[in-house]
Simulated assay, not measured.
Amino acid sequence: MMRKHFTLLAAVPALMLGGCEIGTKVVEQQGPNGVAIADIKHKATMKVAAEVPAPPYELTPDMREGDRAKDVYENVQLLGDVSVDEFNYIMASITEWIAPADQYPETGGCNYCHNPENMASDEVYTKVVARKMLQMTRNINANWTPHFNNNYGQGSEGAGVTCWTCHRGNPVPANNWAAAGPGKKLGQNSPLIQTAYASLPYDSFSAYLAGKGPIRVIGKSAYPNQPSDASIVSTETTYGLMMHMSQGLGVNCTFCHNSQNFGKWDDSRAQRVNAWYGIRMVRDINNNYITALGDTWPANGEGPYGNRRGPEGDPLKVNCATCHNGINRPMGGAKMLKDYPALKAPHGMAIAAAAPAAEAMEEAETMEATPVAAVEAEKPAA
């Protein structure tokens, strides 16, 4: 009788813990046998890759021939090197990716960026923004392949990005951020989606996705008498960023890290290299393209398409979730770039941020272990 009573009491905690998230779990082994590195997901809450819109029409090889757009249209400062037919094909796609006319009958379609009475004019601020964003897109597809083309067997080779990757038919991407407002909480102790509903600071983005603050805070020793450069504040902001990355990609910490030693590169998964480059790519986007537009962004309440600035007046910027939307590979790794090759800058073309990935590699060489060393730590099975 006593044994039965003890068994019942022992089972209660297990039942209580099991009830925290009832439902089928999906477990995927992420590392070699015996290291217990697995990705565990709740099946009912797993996100499905978003549907990718088809091109507006078929662009045949002969349509890429003929007059160049810059020779036919006025004030074509970008994409002037493509044919007129391909230029119109891209413009038709952009209207569906950002401001479809059926959803925005008065301000959508071509009118989202253009004055219909003078298509060459730059008087509509969104046209200036769109030009900068096209520069950014071509820069990403040409220079940031270490982030999205090296998913080591996960099928993202040649995926690239288009306007749809972030916008998904919305003038402002659903996932964005700006500096925290001057409220009493200062971006902390508010369970928000940015940090997977943890009460961690959600404005770690300012330090790490705009600034170049040192992210790593894991000590090299378990002994308390060893000095550490990481304060409690920096540790909280780092973990806020890590929670965001986990939520934004829909993965566990072990997607990138070996939990036996979170800081050690040689024991990390190859995906940590992707993430390392991804952080620097996001900084490039935020600093050299979005913030660089300066006063082009209207004050809140002045534009017809919704606010473009945060409470502190800085523009809405991107983070990991902007592209990923809760999926490890944005849109399931859909290879939209094959239909829009002009959205990758021609080889050797000078772009706003010159060879940013190469600069990131130079930065890596100053580290204790170059991130690329992690590529050899775990390669996908044949």
Rank of each mutant, 00 (worst) to 15 (best):
D314K: 08
E51V: 13
R308M: 09
M136T: 03
N170S: 12
E359V: 08
F262Y: 10
G294P: 06
A275M: 14
W164H: 06
E365K: 13
T296Y: 13
A120H: 15
A50L: 10
F6G: 08
G183M: 04
N300T: 00
M133R: 10
D85I: 06
K127T: 10
E96H: 12
A270R: 13
H5D: 15
M331F: 05
P105F: 01
V12W: 06
C166W: 01
A292W: 07
A299M: 15
T95R: 14
V172Q: 09
R280C: 04
T322K: 05
T95G: 11
K185T: 11
T145H: 12
V161R: 08
I327T: 08
C166E: 05
P311K: 04
R168T: 14
R280A: 07
E365L: 08
E96N: 15
T126S: 08
R308L: 07
S204C: 15
A36F: 08
N141W: 03
G80K: 01
C20W: 12
P191V: 01
L337I: 09
P100N: 11
G34V: 05
A44E: 12
M133G: 15
L134I: 15
R3A: 13
E365V: 06
V217M: 05
M245S: 09
Y73L: 03
E368I: 10
I94C: 12
G181P: 03
I94Q: 07
Q103K: 13
A99W: 03
E96W: 02
K379E: 09
G80A: 02
E359Q: 13
A350M: 00
P105Q: 01
C20Y: 14
V124Q: 10
Y73W: 04
Y223M: 11
M245L: 06
I290L: 13
V27Y: 04
A69K: 04
V26D: 15
A180D: 06
S259Y: 09
G169P: 04
P330V: 01
I90V: 01
M367H: 10
V273L: 05
R272E: 00
V27R: 12
V273E: 10
M336A: 03
S234T: 08
M119T: 11
V129I: 12
V128N: 12
K338D: 07
A196M: 02
K379M: 15
N274P: 06
V48W: 06
D81T: 01
C166Q: 03
